[in-house]
Computed example of a mutant assay.
Amino acid sequence: MLLLGPFVNGLAIIIGGSLGLIFTFIPEHMKDSILKAQGLVVIGLGIQMISASTDVIITLLSLIIGVVIGEILDLEGRLNGVGHWLEFKLGDKNAGNISQGLVSGSMIFIIGAMGIVGGLDAGMRGDNTVFYTKSFMDFFIALVMTTTYGLGVIISGIPAFLYEALITLGAKGFAQFIPESVLSTMTKQVSATGGVIIFAIGLNMMNVTKTRVGNMIPAIFVAMIAVYIISLF
């Protein structure tokens, strides 16, 4: 089954988040400490991913162009809009801070090398090992995040599945046209670009900044396109 990996990952997020709803009784000061500890780990992960960059200039240009596109499209505003609509439909009492959970959860679960590498492995070689490993990690991340952000984290399992399914199907289609060496460089560069965004998410979780990380999403795809264009010359 081609999309088994993305399906398992999405399901792990939903199940982990659902269990997290049970632990909402955790004291606020403990939740804050857990969230900040998680933020520090996310920052560390971002730094590790940034170090994978093969070309800092490409990373910088990808982020600049991506942010401009994201700001014009107001991607974070649209994600927040979906969350607020769900809050209205479900009611604040049951929904929690859905918009913040949806945005934060989507960013954490979508952005990163594992989702990209997992999609490439599943699409090109039919190997879901990376996805299974990511699912194990995301299960516990969703459990902890849901105690703070609520139902939005659980819902973020859906865009995570769709994103990874898209990468898997895309890899299946274009693998025959792109040399494996280019795909390797592309993955590293996208990982570095995503690392900057992950770093920004960690700072937001620490309440150090209020970066509109949703508007940075296009930078990932700009990095992929940039690497491919450069490989043609």
Score class of each variant (00 low, 15 high):
residue 43 I to R: 05
residue 43 I to Q: 06
residue 44 G to A: 02
residue 44 G to I: 00
residue 44 G to C: 03
residue 45 L to C: 11
residue 45 L to V: 13
residue 46 G to Y: 00
residue 47 I to N: 01
residue 48 Q to C: 04
residue 48 Q to A: 11
residue 48 Q to Y: 09
residue 49 M to K: 06
residue 53 S to M: 04
residue 54 T to E: 15
residue 55 D to W: 01
residue 56 V to Y: 08
residue 56 V to C: 04
residue 56 V to N: 07
residue 56 V to R: 05
residue 57 I to P: 02
residue 58 I to E: 12
residue 59 T to R: 03
residue 59 T to K: 04
residue 61 L to E: 11
residue 63 L to M: 05
residue 63 L to C: 13
residue 64 I to P: 11
residue 64 I to V: 12
residue 65 I to Q: 06
residue 65 I to S: 05
residue 65 I to D: 09
residue 66 G to A: 07
residue 66 G to E: 05
residue 67 V to Q: 03
residue 68 V to G: 05
residue 71 E to R: 15
residue 71 E to D: 15
residue 72 I to H: 09
residue 72 I to S: 12
residue 72 I to R: 12
residue 75 L to D: 08
residue 76 E to K: 05
residue 76 E to A: 06
residue 77 G to K: 10
residue 77 G to L: 07
residue 77 G to N: 08
residue 77 G to E: 13
residue 79 L to I: 11
residue 79 L to F: 02
residue 80 N to H: 09
residue 80 N to Y: 04
residue 81 G to A: 02
residue 82 V to Q: 06
residue 82 V to S: 08
residue 83 G to K: 04
residue 83 G to S: 08
residue 83 G to V: 00
residue 85 W to T: 15
residue 86 L to F: 09
residue 86 L to K: 01
residue 87 E to T: 06
residue 87 E to L: 10
residue 87 E to G: 10
residue 87 E to A: 07
residue 89 K to W: 15
residue 90 L to D: 03
residue 91 G to Y: 04
residue 91 G to D: 02
residue 91 G to L: 04
residue 94 N to S: 14
residue 94 N to W: 10
residue 95 A to E: 11
residue 96 G to I: 04
residue 101 G to I: 00
residue 102 L to P: 11
residue 103 V to D: 00
residue 103 V to P: 03
residue 103 V to I: 10
residue 104 S to L: 15
residue 104 S to N: 15
residue 105 G to R: 00
residue 106 S to C: 09
residue 107 M to K: 03
residue 107 M to S: 10
residue 107 M to A: 13
residue 109 F to M: 00
residue 110 I to D: 06
residue 111 I to W: 01
residue 111 I to S: 02
residue 112 G to A: 05
residue 114 M to G: 04
residue 115 G to E: 06
residue 117 V to M: 14
residue 119 G to S: 10
residue 119 G to T: 07
